[in-house]
Structures are given as C-alpha cells and as structure tokens.
Design a protein around this nucleic acid. Structure first.
Length: 473
DNA sequence: TTTTGAGTTGTTCGA
DNA sequence: GTCGAACAACTCAAA
C-alpha cells in the first residue's frame, strides 16, 4: 500500500449512498471504513436492547456492501480513532455529524487529539435536512414552536434540502487482515427467541430501507394523511429505524417523495420529516431535554411512581385493551404505531400519573427506532412539559381513541387475543360489558383479562387538577 | 415596547 | 347522531 488510506468513521450513517463523509474519503485512494461500539461514552444512552438487534443486522449489511472490509471495534472512540491513525499512517479522518450531547462532547475531544497528532478531521451533514444552527429567529435565538420553525426552514433557507449524493464510484475499502472484531464479537444480538420474532417484521440495511421507501410511496403515500391514523392499516412509512441508523438519509426520502408529486398527503408526510428535524433541533439547542422538563414548572408536578402499575403498563396488562395492544405490539415487533404511541404515553402520564422519564426509558430499550432526539421530544410533548406541548386539557381517552381509530377492532384483537370474541361495542371497555356478553366471549375479568388499573374519568380529572396546580403559580 | 394571533394528533357537554 | 363551544393560562413569534 503506497499511500495511506483515509478513515471513514461510520456512526449513524450505515449506508453508501448520499454519504458525504464516505464520498469525500473515497475521493482519492483507499478508504479504511471504521465502526466503533462506544458504550462507555454513551453511558445511560447506549443503544437499547431492540436497537442493538437492529444495529447487529445493519452492520452485517454495511460490511457486506464494503466487501467485508469494515473495521469493527468496541471501546472509547477517542482512543481507538487516534490509535488507528497511528497504526496505519492515516492523516485524514472523515465522519458525518451526530447531535446527541454525549457524541458532540466526544467528537470535540477526538478532534483535539487528532489535531495534536497532525491528523485532519472533517465532518459533514449526513443526517439532517437543515443544520440546527442554520435556522434561528431574527433575534438569533432558536425557535421553540414547531410551526414557525418548519415554516422558516422551508422558506428562508434553501426551500428544499440539497440533493442527495450518489455512492462513490471508485470505492476501495481496505482493512488490514488482523484489524478489529467481527459483528458477532460485539454481541449485539442476544441468544433469545424474542430476536427471531422481531426480525421477521423488518428488512434491515440500506437495501431494505430503499425497498421500504419505494413500497411506501407506491402503496401508502397517496392516502397517508388519513391512513396513518389507523394502526391496523399499516399506513405509516416504517422508515424511522432506517433513518435512525442512517441506512437512508432524510434528503433521499425528501427527494423521492417530492418526485411523487405535490398534494396534501405528501405535505403531511414531509412535515413528519420536519418533526424529526425539529426534535434534533431542540436536542442541539436544549441538550438537557433528555432528562429535564423543558418547562420547569413541571419540576413541581406530583408524579406518583407505582412500580406495579409501571410494570403492568410495560407488559401490556393494564386492563385497557387499546393501551395493552400497543404495549404488546412494541414488545413483539420492536415498534409501535405512531398514534398508539401517543395513547399509551398519555395513559402512563395522565392516567397513571407516572413520570414521563420512566416511559421514555422503556421505549428506549424496546424500540428498534429508539432515537434520543425523537424519544425525548415526543415524551415531553405528550407529558405537556415540552416547549410547544399539547394544551393541558388534551388527554387522550383510550376507549374513544380505540373506537375511532381501530373501528373494526382488528388491531386490538390481534394483540389482545383473549378479547377477540368480544363485540366491538365492548372491545375497548370490557369492564362495561354485561356479564352475559363476557361469558359468551369467554372473558372472565380479573382472570383471563385484568380489570382496568384506573377509572378513565377519575384519573383524567386527577391529572387535570394536578396540571392546573402546576401551571398556576 | 406593545400588541396580536397562534400553538400536531382531544374530550365533553349541551343544544 | 351531529355540531359547536368551552376547556387555563401562558409563552412564543412576528409585526
């Protein structure tokens, strides 16, 4: 090897196409592609269980695209990257930017160390449509409300995001034979039957991401605005885990749906990409939001942690069928339909009065698309402590929501089969069913299916009282 | 500085 | 069954 390779450090961008760091690295000569599992720096925010399973397969796919040359490591990146540079006489390192507070800190440290050993480090935008620092109010401070943020992003800046890049045409990945670990060595996939169950729902990797996008555009996009609300219809894009790991970029998604035309459905879908951007934007400007209430009045909120209630929520045995269906979907697939996420979250926070952080932690471990920005921002939104959160009186009624958005009950019956013989009228509130109806459906409350943990009306009123006290001070 | 209108996704009650 | 109004008060963004 005459000239030393350049390092392309893969992080949340496990793809070859529209990868600006990779393209720059491949511009002249060989590339040493690197991945590091850096649990030490991530600490509490290391990749959760379900996401690790995803990562396992995504790395296998990426490694394959790189002809098996991905150099895989585990440990502290601020030690590994400089060491690789020394070992292989590397003088240039390329990566795409990440926005989690711990990653920003770490990357700064690495940049300094590389500078000390005269290695040039360059970073790029590979995972956002707009950089968080590009979009500010006239007074130079960041937006806190989605609508003006999104409007500003789409009008003041380049109205459409920049075009995606192609994959490098001349990619020569190199990896010294003895270097690094295998994907299996990272032990991301536990030996557990749960894995097989989750895996069958997904096509993981860059190719799978594009298949998923094309299918979405083909089949679901033209009624997305309405269809996305009905969990039994599978009307959402299911792109979130692909986007989280960067198997596909938001620029690529934006461009493809733009090519599909212009109508309300496409605009609604684009605004969902906008919400993803806004979550990253908030995380960048308000990094404490992963742990702290964005509205500090909520520091006084009388959360009440009932461990048993929390566990029953986690395992989908709250006795409220629509909530249980969602929690079981999460457990079985590593995913939950967006509308149902709002409902189970609202139930935890506003009916059980359990702190949103416990809910966020459970989602973090169970979701294949667990994303620090989206997870934190969305939980704060539901709990009402986010900057532009829902009005305090907006509390989802899990019975009404079930009747409205799972009208034939097929989603709920699928995940809560012990109620499958109940008529629609009582499917979402079995506690109201006459005894004869329960008997006929083979349901024995308190035995085959639990009584509800709380009374929906009473717990709602309790939350309203608490919220009233928090906001008037 | 002051003012004005608006703020993802709801529910309930009463006409 | 359908429809509109009420549900707090506050903060944000822009004029």
């Amino acid at each position: 090897m005459s000239t030393p390779p350049r390092i392309c450090w893969f992080r949340q961008d496990l793809r070859l196409h529209d990868n600006p760091a990779l393209l720059a690295a491949a511009e002249s000569g060989a590339v040493l592609p690197v991945f590091i599992l850096d649990d030490g720096n991530a600490g509490k925010w290391q990749c959760g269980g379900a996401a690790r399973l995803w990562l396992h397969h995504s790395l296998i796919a990426l490694n394959k695209s790189l002809k098996g040359r991905l150099s895989i490591h585990r440990g502290r990146a601020e030690e590994i990257i400089p060491r690789l540079c020394r070992d292989h006489q590397v003088t240039q390192v390329f990566w795409n930017r990440c926005y989690e507070p711990w990653r920003i800190e770490r990357d700064k440290k690495i940049r300094r160390r590389l500078q000390e050993q005269s290695v040039d480090a360059q970073s790029f935008n590979g995972s956002l449509l707009w950089e968080p620092w590009q979009i500010l109010k006239k007074d130079g401070t960041p937006y806190k409300i989605f609508t003006p943020f999104y409007k500003s992003a789409r009008t003041n800046k380049p109205a459409t995001p920049s075009d995606p890049l192609s994959a490098p045409g001349n990619l020569v990945p190199v990896r010294p034979d003895s270097d690094g670990l295998t994907v299996e060595d990272l032990e991301l996939r536990p030996d557990h039957p749960w894995c097989k169950k989750v895996e069958q729902h997904w096509r993981i990797g860059e190719q799978g991401a594009h298949l998923t996008l094309e299918e979405f555009i083909e089949i679901k996009l033209d009624h997305y605005g309405h269809g996305r609300d009905f969990p039994a219809q599978h009307g959402t894009s299911k792109l979130s885990p692909h986007l989280h790991f960067g198997e596909i970029s938001p620029r690529q998604v934006w461009e493809r749906v733009s090519e599909a035309g212009f109508d309300d459905n496409i605009e609604v879908f684009k605004s969902e990409l906008g919400w993803r951007e806004f979550s990253y934007y908030l995380l960048y400007h308000f990094p404490t939001m992963v742990q702290e209430n964005l509205k500090s009045q909520f520091d006084r909120f009388p959360w009440w942690l009932n461990e048993q209630w929390l566990q029953r929520w986690q395992h989908g045995i709250t006795g409220v069928p629509f909530v249980d269906a969602g929690m079981r979907e999460l457990w079985q697939t590593g995913h939950m339909h967006n509308r149902v996420r709002m409902i189970v979250a609202s139930f935890l926070v506003k009916n059980l009065l359990i702190d949103w952080r416990y809910g966020a932690a459970w989602f973090w471990d169970c979701l294949v698309d667990a994303d620090l920005a989206s997870n934190s921002a969305s939980w704060q939104w539901v709990a009402g402590c986010g900057t532009d959160a829902a009005p305090f009186f907006r509390i989802f009624n899990p019975v009404t929501q079930g009747q409205k958005f799972d009208p034939d009950g097929s989603y709920t019956r699928y995940y809560v089969p012990e109620l499958k013989n109940l008529p629609n009228k009582y499917l979402f509130s079995p506690w109201k069913a006459p005894q004869a109806t329960l008997d006929q459906a083979g349901v024995r409350l308190g035995d085959t299916y639990p009584f509800p943990l709380v009374d929906i009306q009473q717990s709602r009123n309790k939350a309203l009282e608490a919220l009233k006290r928090v906001s008037s001070s």
